[in-house]
Computed example of a mutant assay.
Amino acid sequence: MINWEGVMPAVTTKFTSEDKLDLAMFEKNIKAQIDAGVHGIILGGTLGEASTLEKEEKEILIKTSLSLVEGKIPVIINIAEQSTKEAIAVAQHAEKVGAQGLMILPPMRYKATDFETVTYFKSIANSTSLPIMIYNNPVDYKIEVTLDMLEDLMECENIQAVKESTRDITNILRVKSRFGDRLKVFTGVDTLGLESLVIGADGWVAGLVCAFPAETVAIYELVKAGKITEALEIYKWFMPLLELDISPQLVQNIKLAEVATGIGTENVRAPRLPLQGAERTRVLDVINKAMECRPALPEYKNLSSVA
């Protein structure tokens, strides 16, 4: 069982300069996430450079994460495959090695019809007992998971949550109105994090949390405790950084931010390369300005959930 709520970082994958997994830095980052109070760890998403990871590397990341979280929070792995057969194989292997949940994207590289997409999700769900979050991101992946499609998917009891990244936060209200607590809703867009939580999102699959875990969790906890003004003060400071998440180079951007906070490196896996030239200067300027006025956080842990 997964309690589908809270901040769940889509963590970056750490690499050495020799393009191997950097487990020492990965451990340092995961511990920072846990210390800040995140509610789950999501491996192998877009930020995790999933398309470049080998099967053995994914297994290592799952096992390492399970060891670090010590059962306190769930470890979830992303499924983003080109074929249904491979997606099922990845899901079943993840369950075998101990992952506690899945986040599933629609089929990759093929613009599936609604029927094909639903069939794909159902096939994976029926192949595993793991709880599942559906990732709805038509902006980046060109397939929208509509309310009617979600209705069809509700026959699979282990489909329990949706990561809502349509950029239309009113869709959160539509999902909650139609499905109630049967389907938990996470915002998947950093620049809509606070607004989405205020109108009823159960959680936030975040990106900049990779570099700034305490600030991200603080916003979530303050909103849930009805302390919107306090949350908004942090969010205003955070916004220039959060905008680094809505870019094709989000991985490079966020890894640069992780360097600034001491819990990551800039190493990416080719064909990605570290930022160059004017864009690198711009991103570093955003990060450096934020670091110069990083806010002192209120005590956000153990807040009452009653406003």
Rank of each mutant, 00 (worst) to 15 (best):
A99D: 10
L43P: 03
T128P: 10
V286N: 05
A231G: 09
Q92N: 13
T64G: 01
A278I: 15
L130F: 08
F212M: 11
K63I: 08
S17Y: 07
N253R: 10
Y235P: 00
L273K: 10
F121W: 08
P295Q: 11
I104F: 02
D148Q: 14
I79C: 01
I76E: 05
D285A: 12
K28L: 14
A270W: 10
A10E: 01
N137F: 13
E230Q: 15
Y220F: 15
V185T: 11
L232D: 15
V217H: 05
Y141L: 13
P274H: 03
E279V: 12
A36H: 06
I172Q: 04
E258G: 04
S17A: 15
P240E: 08
N126D: 14
V75W: 01
E70F: 00
I132M: 11
I41A: 11
I234K: 09
S51P: 02
K14Q: 15
A270D: 05
L208F: 11
K227F: 08
P138F: 11
G180P: 10
R282I: 00
P295H: 09
L241A: 08
A91E: 05
E81A: 09
E266S: 14
A94S: 13
G264F: 03
L250S: 13
A94D: 05
I42A: 06
P298D: 08
I104G: 02
R109Q: 10
L21D: 08
V306D: 11
I143A: 03
R269E: 01
I159E: 09
I60C: 04
G262K: 09
Y110W: 09
T229N: 12
D190E: 05
I199H: 02
K142M: 14
T261L: 04
G98L: 06
E95F: 05
D202M: 10
S196W: 04
L244D: 06
G6E: 08
L183H: 01
I60F: 00
R280I: 00
A206H: 01
I159F: 07
T119W: 08
M239Q: 13
Y300V: 11
S65H: 01
M291V: 11
N78Q: 12
K224Q: 14
V283C: 01
L105K: 03
E266N: 12
A211H: 06
N29W: 04
L130H: 08
Q92S: 07
A112R: 06
K111T: 11
Y220K: 08
K72F: 01
K96W: 01
M1R: 09
G48P: 04
L244P: 03
L153Y: 04
V162R: 07
L61K: 05
L183A: 03
K55F: 06
T281M: 07
I219W: 01
N253S: 09
V90I: 12
P138E: 12
